[in-house]
C-alpha cells in the first residue's frame, strides 16, 4: 500500500520530467530498477542508497528498488552485480572494499575490472578520536602520538574488524609514526563509540557520521583525520597529511553495473547520476545524514578506483595481510 503511494508519486514526478523538453534521446530504464546494496538495512551504506535512489527516480523515470544483500560482508552482492543481466535494470552500489576484498578475503573472484562504472557518489574520512574525559582527552594529536610511542600497546585502539577501513587507518598511523596500539576488534562503529565512552578503549578511527553527536556534546575529541580536504563538520581538525604523516587511504562509494553493459545504457545511467548528484535536494540530504558529498563521472571514477587498488595492494603487501578464508 505504502509502496504504491510511493511509486505513484514517483510516476507523477516522472511524468512532469518527461513533459519537459528532452535535451537528447538518451537511454532510460523502461521498467523498475534494482539497486543492490552490499549491506543490511540501516547504517551508512543503506542510507546513502536510499537517499540517492529516491532522487535518481526523478531522472530515471522509473521506481528504484533498494535490494539489501548483506551476505558474506558484501561478497554475495558484488558477485550478483557482476553477473547481472547487462540491460541497465540492475545496478550496484559499491564501496572501496570492491578493490580491497581481493587482498583480504580468500576466494574473491572480482576486482576493479569486473565492472563498468557509472560514477562516484560519496567520500568519507576516518577521524582519530579519544574520549574527552579519558587520560588523553587534553592532548592534541602530536602529544597523543608521543604518548603512544612512549608506552607501546598501552593505548587500546578499537577497530571494527580485521582489515576494515578503521583497521587500515590504524595500521597507517602506526607505520607513519612508529606508535604501537593494542588492537581491539569491536563489531561496528556504534559499539566502538560505546567502548570509548565506557573507557574500555582509549582511541579509534571512525567516520564523522559515527561520532558527530558525541563530539558535539564534548564527550569525544577529534584529533586528526585522513582526508585530503578539511572536514565539513570540524574544519579545525588537522589532516594527517598536513602534519606530514602518510595516513591517507581514500574511502568512497560508487555505482557500478556489469562489465559488458552496452555503452549507450551506461551513458544513460551516467547522466541520470550526474543530474541526481547536482540536485540540491540530494546535497541537503547528504549534509543532514552526514554523508560526505563527492561526485566524479565515470572516467574520473575509474582513475580513483585504479589509485585505490594500487594503494590497498601496496599497504596489504607491506602489512602482510593474511587472507581470511571464505
Amino acid at each position: 500500500m505504502f509502496r504504491h503511494i510511493l511509486s505513484g508519486s514517483a510516476a507523477l514526478v516522472a511524468a512532469v520530467a518527461i513533459a519537459l523538453p528532452a535535451v537528447a534521446q538518451e537511454w532510460r530504464p523502461s521498467r523498475p530498477v534494482d539497486l543492490i546494496v552490499p549491506s543490511g538495512a540501516g547504517g551508512g551504506h543503506d542510507n546513502n542508497a536510499r537517499l540517492l535512489g529516491a532522487i535518481m527516480e526523478k531522472y530515471a523515470g522509473q521506481p528504484i528498488n533498494i535490494i539489501n544483500q548483506p551476505a558474506g560482508g558484501g561478497v554475495v552482492a558484488y558477485r550478483e552485480m557482476r553477473d547481472a543481466e547487462p540491460d541497465g535494470h540492475k545496478i550496484g552500489q559499491v564501496s572501496v572494499s570492491i578493490v580491497s576484498d581481493q587482498f583480504r578475503i580468500e576466494g574473491v573472484d572480482y576486482n576493479k575490472d569486473s565492472y563498468a562504472y557509472i560514477g562516484q557518489i560519496s567520500a568519507d574520512q576516518n577521524v582519530l578520536v579519544v574520549a574527552a574525559n579519558g587520560p588523553y582527552g587534553e592532548m592534541d594529536v602530536t602529544q597523543f602520538i608521543e604518548a603512544a610511542k612512549a608506552e607501546p600497546q598501552a593505548i587500546a585502539f578499537g577497530v571494527s574488524g580485521n582489515w576494515t577501513n578503521h583497521d587500515y587507518t590504524r595500521y597507517q598511523i602506526e607505520q607513519a609514526t612508529g606508535a604501537q596500539f593494542l588492537r581491539v576488534p569491536i563489531k561496528g562503529g556504534a559499539q566502538i563509540v560505546l567502548s570509548l565512552l565506557s573507557g574500555d578503549v582509549q582511541a579509534g578511527a571512525l567516520y564523522p557520521s559515527e561520532i558527530k553527536a558525541q563530539v558535539d556534546a564534548g564527550q569525544l575529541k577529534p584529533l586528526a583525520h585522513n582526508g585530503s580536504e578539511p572536514l565539513a563538520a570540524w574544519p579545525d581538525v588537522p589532516s594527517f597529511s598536513s602534519l606530514g604523516l602518510e595516513v591517507n587511504l581514500a574511502i568512497w562509494r560508487a555505482l557500478v553495473m556489469p562489465k559488458d553493459t552496452p555503452e549507450e545504457i551506461r551513458k544513460g545511467w551516467e547522466s541520470i547520476l550526474e543530474q541526481a548528484m547536482n540536485d540540491p535536494a540530494l546535497k541537503e540530504g547528504y549534509a543532514n545524514a552526514g554523508i560526505g558529498y563527492a561526485y566524479r563521472n565515470a572516467e574520473d571514477t575509474i582513475e580513483l578506483v585504479n589509485e585505490a587498488e594500487a594503494a590497498y595492494r601496496s599497504i596489504s603487501e607491506a602489512a602482510g595481510v593474511q587472507k581470511a578464508s571464505q
Binding site: 504504491h4 528498488n65 535490494i67
Partner: peptide
C-alpha cells in the same frame, strides 16, 4: 496470490 499481494506489493519484499 495472497503472498504476492501482501509480501511483494504491500510489504515490498523484493
Amino acid at each position: 496470490i495472497f503472498g504476492a499481494l501482501v509480501f511483494v506489493e504491500a510489504l515490498g519484499v523484493p
